Computed example of a mutant assay.
Amino acid sequence: MRVEVNHRCSDFHSYRAARVKSLFNAESGCDWNHVADLPFEEMNWKIGLIVGPSGSGKTSIGGSIFNTPIHDLYAGWDNEKPIVDAIAPVGDFNQVTGALSAVGLGDVPAWLRPFSVLSNGEKFRAGLARLICERPERVVVDEFTSVIDRQIAKVGAAAFAKTWRRGPGQIVLLSCHYDIMEWLQPDWVYDTQEARFARDCLWQRPKLELEIYQVSGSVFKHFKPHYYLDLPLPVAAQYFVGVVNGEPVCHLAVSPLFTANAYRSTRLVVMPEWQGIGVGTKFLDAICEYHLQGNGRCGKKYPTFFHTSHPQLCGALRHSKKWRQTAGSLYGSNKSRSAASIKKSRETTGKVFNDGSIGCATGYGGHFRAVQAFKYEGEKICE
């Protein structure tokens, strides 16, 4: 494909325009031309990237590739609904939440806000999530990752590419940032600065070295804003933090469950900007393997249980050969059963207070979370 861009405007002759021409020997600024050779027609591709500095013609070329307007990520939102409802209203819930996580918008409270109140970076990522769910056959997106932090941009580019390649459709991304190329791993790249087309490049994604440290429970306060259950700290727990390039990115607590010959892991938190590329599951596997090898409390070589209601994490653990699902509640616990359990507890083991009232020791806890349970068993050794 050969794309020719020819822009022309009026040649102005005002005093200031004439003075600029004289000072800088600029005969005219009314013409702008660029020719781009993009031989991708016979390629089997899903992701293309047009990269170059601002003003080098990316938008003009992108608007001519498919003869359709550049996709507007910010248009068509229903600001009377939270984005989790506005994206693919009749689509699959897991697909929507998975798309939001894949583009780096893993901050769950943001899912409950309408598009109009999000920050510019959140709006951009919400637009990408909607695009993933809509799956047009061909689409061009401008200013890819331009309004978000560069660390989020790189991790988000990798997660977006992984998600986009799972389905149909071709997408061309326009960006002025070269730092996303190795993370995005596009099928072809056109550099407007050098007028150079590259294809079938073996992009080597930078390796992430995850360092794991055992820490005190006080560290959890830094991750608490991204943990949405208000529960007391687990008894006799050990705490672990995963660090990438000196930055804490994930957290996990593990407490003994020796009555079941096991450990229980909880308080798993992955910082939103690091979600979508598998850091959390690698971290969780490493900690559970650490305990399975007898490095936990009392040196017990026990498996580890883990409970979660996150749709994408549940899916990842189900597909892992190291994990086995042991239980799954697809709806909240029965409130009537909870009330009956509390009443029975009060009658049998209740404590009499000074005012004569009777308290209960415990009860069956009613809630509305669809919790699923998994057990880490490690790699299966075939005999």
Rank of each mutant, 00 (worst) to 15 (best):
H7Y: 14
R8I: 11
S10V: 13
R16P: 07
A17W: 11
K21V: 10
S22G: 11
L23R: 14
N33T: 12
A36M: 05
A36F: 00
D37L: 10
D37H: 11
L38R: 05
L38P: 02
E42H: 14
E42Q: 12
M43A: 09
W45Y: 05
P53F: 09
S54F: 08
S64K: 15
D72V: 06
K81T: 06
D85I: 03
I87E: 05
V96Q: 00
A102M: 03
L105E: 02
P109I: 10
P109F: 09
L112D: 11
S119G: 03
L131F: 00
E134T: 13
P136A: 07
E137T: 12
R138H: 14
T145G: 01
D149P: 02
Q151C: 06
F160N: 03
K162D: 11
R165S: 06
G167R: 09
L184F: 05
D191S: 08
D191W: 01
Q193V: 10
F197V: 06
L210F: 03
Q214K: 13
K221F: 08
K221N: 10
Y239Q: 05
N245F: 08
E247L: 13
V249G: 02
L252K: 04
L252G: 05
L257C: 10
A260K: 12
R267W: 14
V269D: 04
W274S: 00
W274G: 03
G276A: 03
I277N: 01
G278I: 04
V279R: 01
T281A: 06
L284Y: 06
C298A: 15
F306E: 03
T308S: 02
C314L: 07
L317T: 04
L317C: 01
W323Y: 08
W323F: 07
A327R: 11
N334G: 07
K335T: 12
K335M: 12
A340D: 12
R346P: 09
T349S: 15
N354E: 13
D355Y: 07
D355Q: 09
G359K: 04
G363C: 08
H367S: 04
K380E: 14
C382W: 12
